[in-house]
């Protein structure tokens, strides 16, 4: 009878380390949440430096191979089924949290000369493990332009983060994905702010609004 708690404690403790790999070894791919969620710490930092609601038009392309797979931790980590809506939410939620007013333009369409425009090409989204850590990287290739101005050179925005893998849960990896996106968005926002401050060219300011 006395051996029962002894064995139970031992078995429980032993299972703590093995549970992660067992959980990872059974089951199918894990899905990221349907939309980007601004990490709490990033949201606080973003609010301290706003962009006054500056309008930003975003053209988003995702030429990655097999883009639905965005990582692995024993099982594959998959992007949400509506990947386009998820990626848009990264910029919609993320840039609003940083004080911008984002809108989206179809790929290849003419840029709106009245607002700041950004062409974003997704290069990397990858969340995985490295020994006892979770590692994540997001790489965005951006071409930015002030209202009505020619586009600038391509700039690479990276979000990289490594942290101890605590529980190996889908939520933990989902949060990690949001965190690396937030890091890349911080740098993007930094480059967008001066463009918002640039005065719009006379032709753009006088151009009639669409539909007039």
């Amino acid at each position: 009878m006395r051996s029962a708690p002894f064995l139970a404690t031992a078995a429980l403790a032993a299972s703590l380390l093995t549970a992660g790999s067992a959980a990872a070894a059974v089951g199918d791919a894990k899905l990221l949440g349907p939309l980007y969620v601004e990490p709490a710490a990033a949201a606080d930092a973003a609010n301290s430096s706003t962009a006054g609601g500056c309008a930003v038009q975003i053209e988003l392309t995702d030429p990655r191979r097999d883009p639905q797979i965005v990582g692995a931790f024993g099982v594959a980590l998959r992007a949400p089924d509506d990947r386009e809506a998820w990626l848009r939410s990264v910029f919609d939620v993320g840039l609003k949290a940083r004080g911008f007013t984002p809108s989206f333009a179809p790929a290849g369409g003419p840029p709106d000369p009245a607002v700041v425009t950004v062409r974003i090409r997704i290069q990397v989204i990858w969340i995985s493990t490295q020994q006892m850590n979770k590692v994540g990287s997001v790489v965005l290739r951006g071409v930015l332009a002030a209202p009505g101005a020619p586009a600038g050179p391509e700039v690479v925005y990276r979000g990289d983060k490594t942290a101890v893998n605590m529980w190996g849960s889908t939520k933990e990896f989902n949060d990690h994905a949001n965190a690396v996106f937030a890091l890349a968005l911080d740098d993007l926002a930094e480059d967008l702010r001066p463009l918002c401050a640039a005065p719009p060219p006379a032709t753009a300011a006088l151009a009639p609004a669409p539909g007039r």
């Binding site: 070894a25 089951g27 199918d28 791919a29 191979r65 097999d66 797979i69 692995a72 099982v75 594959a76």
Partner: peptide, 9 residues
């Protein structure tokens, strides 16, 4: 080609 290199994939 696959990006999924797991046993399940």
């Amino acid at each position: 080609f696959s990006r999924d290199a797991t046993l399940f994939g």
